[in-house]
Amino acid sequence: MTGFFHETAFYGTDDDFLAHAVPFLEDGLRAGEPSVVACSEQNTELLRGTLGRTGVIFRPGTGQYSRPSEAIANYLDLFREYTAGGAQQMRVIGQVPHPGTGARWDWWARYEAAVNQAYAEFPVWGLCPYDTRTTPADVLADVVSTHPNIATAPGTHEANPGYRAGLASSPPLPDVLEEGVPLVELVDPAAGTVREAVGNAIDGMDLDEEAAHDAVYAASEIVTNGLTHGVAPVRFRLWADGARVVLAVTDHGPGPSDPTAGLVPTTETRSAGLGLWILHRTCDYVSMGRDADGFTVRVSVGGQT
């Protein structure tokens, strides 16, 4: 195998999960391939109990999938390490967070689309099993559209006719704070004006110094991004509840067509990629997408989303 083989599988019982996962890992171990598991705690224990002491590399799923940009950066480091060490093939079983496990989905849907490109240079077989008992139907639809390959039954590995290259279909959803009136609303503002307005709005909030800095930086960055790469008018809004800040910038452009925008490390300073990547590494939540109002970048800092 050359390049990234991105596969999904659906299961409805613990036995179904093991029927997909155990042969996948055992075959990799027999071939001398680095084999990594980053699953839920329950499924990790199921695999440990079934496989016993083996050479499988277990990573805590909650740590590996803390946020999409972190997951991609960590996997890229891992793949480079094993490739430099002589690995000709690697295997990964990873379970991506979704609303059934308490996570916001749209940035993880973008992750599943982006990794087809982000990991393309590495000889990795990635298996993404989803539990049909807990995964919402709209998430399962996105999973089908973002995985070029599918294991319809244990041991089968087929091209997925439902795969659609590019962005996942799940639209970003407004934050619950957006049900209220914005504390700040500006149209076509300069970045300096936005920084000052955000600093004044969050002064006295229950945010630590780092979170307050992240909020001001994020506001400046998404406004600059909209003014530079979007289509006027560019509208900036801020909501807050005392411990959490939500920022949104909407313009009338199409937004980036690259599914990896903001999710992969970059040093390109002339595009939106670097600033968006920093946002994805510092903010608690980032969403990007189009709706009837235009293209919106939305970030949340502090508290829980």
Rank of each mutant, 00 (worst) to 15 (best):
T101C: 09
L140F: 09
V92G: 00
D142C: 06
Q95C: 13
G52M: 07
W107C: 03
T101G: 06
R59T: 13
Y130C: 03
P129H: 10
P97H: 05
V56C: 04
H98G: 12
R91L: 05
N74C: 02
W105D: 09
E121F: 08
E70F: 12
C128S: 12
T101L: 13
G61D: 00
L78I: 03
E112Q: 08
D106M: 00
E121G: 06
Q95K: 04
L51W: 14
L127V: 13
M90P: 09
W108Y: 14
E112N: 04
G102M: 05
G85Y: 05
T135P: 06
V124P: 08
P60Q: 08
R133Q: 15
I93S: 06
A118E: 01
N74K: 11
R59V: 15
D138K: 03
D77A: 15
Q88F: 01
A73P: 04
R104L: 12
A141R: 14
D142R: 02
D142T: 10
F58T: 00
W125N: 11
H98M: 02
R133N: 15
E70V: 12
I93R: 07
D142Q: 05
R110G: 11
G102A: 08
V115A: 04
W107V: 01
W107E: 11
A118Y: 10
V115W: 07
P129Q: 02
P99K: 07
Q88W: 09
Y130L: 01
L76S: 00
D131R: 09
G86M: 10
R110C: 08
G61C: 02
Q95N: 03
S66I: 06
A103W: 11
C128T: 09
D138I: 05
V92Y: 14
I93C: 09
G52L: 06
D106E: 15
G85H: 11
V115E: 04
A120I: 06
A103R: 11
A71Q: 00
F122E: 02
F58C: 02
V115I: 15
E70N: 06
G63I: 01
D106H: 14
G85T: 06
L51N: 09
R80Y: 00
A103M: 01
S69Y: 00
R53T: 14
W125G: 06
F122Y: 15
